[in-house]
Design a protein around this nucleic acid. Structure first.
Length: 294
DNA sequence: TTTCAGGAGTACG
DNA sequence: CGTACTCCTGAA
């Protein structure tokens, strides 16, 4: 992408960034820690940095960062080297996706941290987004490293594997994780004790990765696919949550289709971009309340 | 005011 | 395959 980067004090303005809409990116179900501010900007912490992102007309403004960090960190994090325009064009051969990609035109898949995503999506099981956010926020505030303040809000890193592994189940339960506390603790201890390198899963096939992840107690097919898609570059992983199930049944399949059958239908239809299609469909379904019974 | 249904994937029977 | 798990929201 040909970008024009303008540096101003502690912020940089990027001109010509296509297919980038903060609301679409942060509210399509892939992340839980970006905080929406009153001015429609979003603030977040990653790699021990707090950054604020805002769209203003043709500019995307990154505040509290440098050109260096943008190039080394955020460029990759926001998947800026992937041509979403092309992907949308391919997906638009399907009539439904043609609509969904227009509706969520600024969606990008963030390249998030595998450990944080693994725990976050264990917490997401059978849970609602506001509660998931609350759990992760509390866990970070209690057990993560303090990084800094932005706009009056304190920001903490996500707790390390070691830190979570040494806690008691009640400590984790106190962070509103409910029955998932034992899964969170179990995952941390298992990774530590068996010296599991989550980054190695990136080099495996999606199928192999899914198999490994599902060996964790608390990780089923949906959570495994979220981890693969959101932190391991597996763009063909197709997580089926209640919204995706609804939207797939509403537009393509009959009611009460088995998850396995939805899965294989999506793989066949959307192929290597199934995961990206999933994001457009999820956002479309959730914002428009599609398929939900009254 | 209090009560209770609704919502969400996974483990386990 | 059916059922329990957890706890906040919002309607009754």
């Amino acid at each position: 992408m040909n970008l024009n980067i303008i540096q101003e004090e502690n912020k940089i303005k990027i001109q010509g960034l296509k297919d980038f809409e903060p609301k679409h990116i942060f509210e399509c179900g892939q992340c839980f820690r970006w905080k929406r501010n009153d001015d429609d900007s979003y603030t977040y912490i990653a790699k021990k940095k707090v950054v604020n992102v805002k769209k203003e007309e043709d500019y995307v403004i990154f505040t509290n960062t440098t050109v260096e960090d943008f190039n080394n960190l955020w460029c990759d994090y926001f998947d800026l080297n992937r041509d979403y325009g092309h992907i949308k064009e391919v997906l638009s051969n399907d009539e439904i996706l043609a609509d969904a990609t227009i509706f969520g035109h600024g969606i990008r898949i963030l390249k998030q941290n595998p450990w944080e995503i693994l725990i976050s999506f264990i917490i997401s099981a059978n849970n609602r987004i506001p509660m998931i956010k609350k759990s992760i926020k509390t866990l970070s505030e209690q057990y993560g490293e303090y990084i800094g303040e932005y706009n009056g809000e304190k920001y903490y890193a996500f707790p390390t594997v070691e830190k979570l592994a040494e806690l008691k189940e009640e400590d984790i339960r106190a962070c509103y994780t409910g029955f998932r506390a034992k899964y969170v603790l179990g995952a941390a201890r298992r990774i530590l004790e068996q010296n599991i390198d989550l980054y190695k899963i990136k080099d495996m096939t999606t199928e192999e990765g899914r198999e490994i992840l599902m060996k964790f107690s608390g990780i089923g097919p949906k959570v495994a696919d979220c981890i693969l898609l959101f932190s391991m570059d597996k763009m063909d992983a197709f997580p089926i949550d209640i919204w995706v199930k609804r939207v797939m049944e509403y537009f393509y399949l009959k009611e009460d289709t088995k998850l396995k059958d939805i899965q294989s239908y999506a793989t066949e239809k959307f192929g290597e971009y199934a995961g990206i299609a999933q994001q457009y469909l999820f956002y479309y379904a959730r914002e428009k309340n599609i398929g939900k019974k009254k």
